[in-house]
């Protein structure tokens, strides 16, 4: 008897997650995006198990060997090798590790800075809001790659500095999104209620308002992943990001440029990895936005 009651109540009041999944799974593109992301994450996590060789192992007798299905292919190197004889498949697999962690770090750092600035800006208003918003305006007026290059020019090239540079570029959008939702939330009754109870500003900001800003923040975080991966790869391509021999997709492309006529597979494959990982996060982010924000539904 009790069980039956439980069941009906569950059916009548589906959990938030289930409701979200029902909305989300209607969007085929978004599910495809999620699948792409999961594939890349799994590849990144299990890279050492999946990769047939070490990404930096040099096979002196196999320089620029073509993919297996081409005429000059060689057993053991499915996607061929690069100009110094490293297995491209293994480098692409380890590249997923680099790009996924760069994407994660970029979103993490940008969120950490952006959320705090946005909360302060939206909650307190006044001169501090004006100063913060002015700074984000300035950062947003600069083309993203230009700004990232400037940061790298100051700090010097390298993977860690790439993360910082790309995160700086991503901060303003987080600030704006959090600020906008804080302003929308802060005059609602639940906030006033906790103010009446004497909750501190910090408590209200982080424990009352922030949880209600999560939806747009999650969407922006997902889209930030794709921008982060793309910008980091662009820096790598320009020779300002991860330095060789790091198996980073953008850096691999930059190496491959010189061999575009003789070894086109060296150019094609890393680019496809960048395209599909960015596409995955964009599709997933768009789907999340539609599922989490009913107002945007067409």
């Amino acid at each position: 008897m009790e069980e039956a009651i439980d069941k009906t109540s569950v059916e009548k009041d589906p959990s938030v997650l289930k409701e979200f999944w029902d909305d989300f799974s209607k969007n085929k593109g978004a599910v495809g995006g999620l699948a792409l992301i999961l594939v890349f994450i799994l590849i990144a996590v299990f890279a050492p198990l999946l990769a047939p060789h070490s990404p930096s192992e040099i096979f002196g007798d196999a320089l620029r060997v073509g993919p297996n299905w081409s005429d000059n292919g060689k057993a053991g190197f499915f996607f061929g090798t690069d100009d110094v004889g490293r297995d491209i498949l293994s480098r692409l697999i380890y590249g997923a590790r680099v790009s996924m962690s760069v994407g994660f770090m970029v979103v993490f750092v940008a969120m950490l800075i952006g959320v705090n600035l946005g909360l302060v800006s939206g909650y307190f208003g006044g001169w501090i809001d004006r100063v913060i918003m002015r700074c984000t305006d300035i950062l947003m007026s600069l083309p993203s790659i230009l700004l990232a290059i400037v940061v790298v020019a100051i700090l010097g090239p390298g993977l860690n500095n790439t993360v910082l540079a790309v995160a700086v570029v991503a901060v303003p959008s987080f600030v704006r999104i959090v600020r906008a939702s804080v302003i929308a939330e802060k005059n609602k009754q639940y906030v006033m209620a906790s103010q009446t109870f004497g909750a501190s500003s910090l408590r209200i900001m982080y424990f009352e308002i922030l949880p209600n800003c999560l939806a747009p923040l999650i969407v922006q975080g997902t889209l930030g992943f794709s921008d982060g991966i793309l910008n980091a790869a662009a820096l790598g391509f320009l020779g300002l990001g991860a330095q060789p021999p790091t198996p980073e997709w953008g850096t691999m492309l930059s190496d491959a440029r010189a061999f575009i006529e003789s070894s086109p597979w060296m150019v094609t494959l890393p680019g496809l990895c960048i395209l599909f990982s960015v596409l995955g996060f964009n599709l997933f982010g768009d789907g999340l936005r539609d599922a989490l924000d009913p107002r945007l539904k067409k």
Binding site: S226, L230, A234, L238, G250, L253, V267, L275, D286
Partner: peptide
């Protein structure tokens, strides 16, 4: 679908692919 792919396109790669197809 194509426009979403275009929107996610790493253009530094896309440029190389265009060179590969039309020039090389």
């Amino acid at each position: 679908g194509g426009s979403l792919a275009g929107y996610s396109m790493p253009i530094f790669w896309w440029g190389l692919v265009l060179i590969l197809i039309f020039s090389v």
